[in-house]
Design a protein around this nucleic acid. Structure first.
Lengths: 202, 202
DNA sequence: AAATTATCCGAACGACCGTTCGTTAATTTA
DNA sequence: TAAATTAACGAACGGTCGTTCGGATAATTT
């Protein structure tokens, strides 16, 4: 693939379909999006779509799988690298927020709850989500323990991790690039609020 | 209505329909929920439903309107009452989280983003949401100013308010009464995290 | 007891749904 | 170039969708 194609995000084949489908589905919801609508926005015929996936449910699965895999690829090595707990937490938040803002539609679908699905598919996604959650819980737990010297309970760490998830994943409810700055700005704000509170000092 | 009816939540008519519809819609999504499914879960015939609302879209509107009106009724007087900024913030969080956990299905629908709707209806909901958001922004802003002595920018206050929203509204993604305690516990945790950070001291 | 109103229903309508089928065009491989 | 594989298509299928309509039953008022 040429560099030009990469730069312009002129994706082809399945990747292009997943991207454009995610945009429409983020707007209309999974059930509200018809195969005919997907055919239109992808510039293909209705039946032509079925060359790339076997049915609508698999399309939803592929969007989710691609997204969670990418998220994990960004942050999966944070625990291995030689970083302080604070740098790890900051890195996790930065990676997540950056990916979120660069893939708003996709993330909207990924965070819109569990959809009824083929057993094997939902298990695959469940494992990906769990792997990512465990990573976050480890990073949050290490940070909290390193800050206070004592060990926090698993339940406490999990709850705090969910609160962090909330701050990050609620972005789609309000974010607009024009009014709220770059991903880096948001990530800084979330890191600061999560570690020091809404008006904590540096 | 008898006390017994109130205690048992044995609602009748429209209220019962809105409750049971919200439960099904929270599970399947708006478009994924059929009028026939709603008829079944409400114990009515398909055509009998149309006695209570004129179409499916109005049902969605009524669920949202009832929810946001209730939310506002809980916290609308926090600014008038003689409270400290801290008590106001704590009260807002407690009210929101309590209502959220007591009406998980309804809140799931209310927070699932803007749905295409009749102009007047969407404007009515938009005003309710804005009124509630403004209340939260005022409470958060007053608290922040009172803590640091200085005045924070509107943009900074708004961003922090959205982060607080995120922590509260993400509850449906993980909360279960068995594992995560009462609404009061969650509210305390959110208040503490938002004001002091994830391992801030009292 | 009659009249009026509020609830509720079965049956049907046209529109749209996801999916399949047989076939053709384009591209790659031999 | 010929064969094989990939990509794309129009047309059609059975089913489900939201909604409507005329009429039945129950509740309330007169």
């Amino acid at each position: 693939m040429s560099d030009q194609a990469v730069i312009n995000k002129r994706l082809t084949g399945l990747d292009e379909i997943l991207d454009k489908s995610a945009q429409l589905m983020a707007h209309l919801g999974y059930h509200g999006t018809s195969m005919r609508g997907l055919a239109q926005v992808t510039g293909r015929s209705l039946s032509g779509l079925y060359h790339y996936f076997s049915n609508k449910e698999e399309l939803l699965f592929l969007i989710n799988q691609r997204g969670f895999t990418s998220l994990l690829a960004m942050s999966g090595d944070l625990l291995q690298r030689d970083l302080t707990p604070q740098e790890r937490l900051s890195g996790l938040i930065h990676n997540h927020v950056t990916y979120f803002i660069d893939h708003l539609s996709e993330m909207r679908i990924m965070t819109s709850g569990t959809m009824e699905m083929n057993e094997q598919r939902s298990q695959t996604l469940w494992k990906l989500k769990q792997e990512y959650t465990r990573l976050a819980q480890n990073i949050v737990g290490d940070y909290m323990d390193s800050q206070s010297g004592t060990n926090h309970s698993a339940q406490s760490i999990n709850r705090k991790t969910y609160l962090l998830y909330g701050m990050m994943n609620w972005i789609f409810g309000w974010y607009s690039a024009k009014n709220h700055g770059t991903a880096k700005d948001i990530a800084k704000d979330i890191f600061h609020t999560f570690t020091k509170g809404c008006c904590g000092t540096e």
